[in-house]
Computed example of a mutant assay.
Amino acid sequence: MLYESILFGSTFVMTSLILMTGCSSKKKAAPSVAPSPQSASKSPAATPSVAKSTVSKSPATETKATETGETKDTTNAETKNEETKGNVRFVWISEMLIFFQDEETNDKTEAKKDETRQETVRKDDDKKDDGEKKKEEDEKENDKKEENKNENKKKKEDFIRADPTELSFESATTSQKKLRLKNLTSKKLMFKVKSTTTNTYLINPVFGKIEPNNFADVMITHRPSGKREDKLVIVSSEMLGKELEMAKTFKQIKTTGNDVIVKLVST
């Protein structure tokens, strides 16, 4: 709206200046001076013979002619000056219009750049918000899994107790020690013994059963190895299926008793 107002005003001023220049030129262009009656008359001393005499001009006529020529020259010079000033004004107005057009173009370009920057910032903020939301959702999911895991642990009972909870062996020799497992319930249990290494320790039996409130012994054989630490994990559940199929049964069910950990040390 501002640009349109400036353009309209500049056009109006330019048109007015051109019209004023034209009118001024017309007003200052004086008509040719008509010769005076005296210039048309001949000198009294002139002879009637045209062939032998020459017509002489009076001093007044020559003076008026000179003044007329000077007036014409002055008028032409003033007219040229006015035309030059009008051209200068026209060029100045044109330059002003170009200047305002460039300013408006620059403003539009800057506005577009600002919109682009704002859009980029908005997208970055949206990405950050999405990343934070996803992170929060992942944390909630992990917390939920942890809670479920803890609840499952709480639901499980201590079916078996191991004695001792740590076994030590000499690293350079072969030796064997006994691990006793006690059934803490009034139900018949089955158990499975898992080791973190099968090359150093041999377990017999890997699968077994324990009568209610009774014991079961497991033999742990150590073979020569370097100094290291390992562990046994004993999982248990109520007796299901046939005794000979305990390995298959453990693959199909979830254990109901808490895991028992026994530390193995080779020194």
Results as ranks from 00 to 15, higher is better:
E170W: 03
G86S: 15
L189V: 02
Y3C: 03
K182V: 12
K80V: 07
M246H: 03
F207S: 00
V235I: 09
K26S: 05
T198W: 04
S24N: 10
N150Y: 04
T249I: 06
D124N: 14
T15L: 11
E141L: 07
E243Y: 04
A46S: 14
K263T: 08
N106L: 14
M20S: 13
T15H: 07
F8N: 11
I203Q: 00
I253Q: 04
A34N: 14
L189F: 04
S10N: 09
A77G: 08
N152E: 13
D114F: 07
D130K: 14
L244N: 13
S168N: 07
G257L: 03
F191M: 01
I210V: 09
E137I: 05
K128A: 15
T198D: 13
K187C: 03
I234E: 00
P48N: 15
A51E: 15
I220T: 01
K149I: 02
K108C: 02
F207D: 00
L19A: 15
G257M: 04
R89H: 11
E170S: 08
I253V: 13
T21L: 10
T63K: 14
E103G: 12
L179S: 01
K177H: 08
S25T: 03
D124F: 12
K251T: 06
E104D: 12
A172S: 12
K133H: 10
S56K: 14
L189S: 01
N183E: 04
D158L: 09
V121Q: 05
P59W: 08
L240F: 01
T15F: 06
T196C: 06
S36P: 13
N213R: 10
V88K: 08
E147N: 11
E103R: 13
T197A: 14
A46F: 14
K140R: 14
I220A: 00
S175W: 02
G22I: 13
K155Q: 11
E136Y: 11
T174P: 04
S43K: 14
E95Y: 09
T255M: 10
A77C: 05
D130T: 13
V206D: 00
K182N: 15
K177Q: 13
L240C: 00
Q118S: 12
K112D: 15
R117I: 09
G69W: 10
T221M: 06
T196Y: 06
G257I: 02
N214T: 02
K133C: 05
E119C: 04
T63Y: 10
F8S: 13
K57V: 02
E151N: 06
K209A: 03
Q38G: 09
D163N: 10
D125F: 15
P205S: 08
K64C: 01
D217M: 11
S58H: 12
M246D: 02
K140T: 04
N150K: 11
D107V: 03
A29E: 08
E110F: 06
E115T: 08
M239P: 01
K28A: 03
K42F: 15
P224N: 05
K154N: 07
S175K: 02
D163M: 07
M1A: 07
T221R: 03
R223A: 05
P44C: 12
S175H: 01
S195R: 02
L189P: 01
A162C: 09
L2M: 09
N142F: 08
S175D: 09
H222C: 04
F159Q: 00
E136D: 15
A34F: 12
K178V: 08
D143M: 08
V193Q: 00
E166R: 05
F250Q: 00
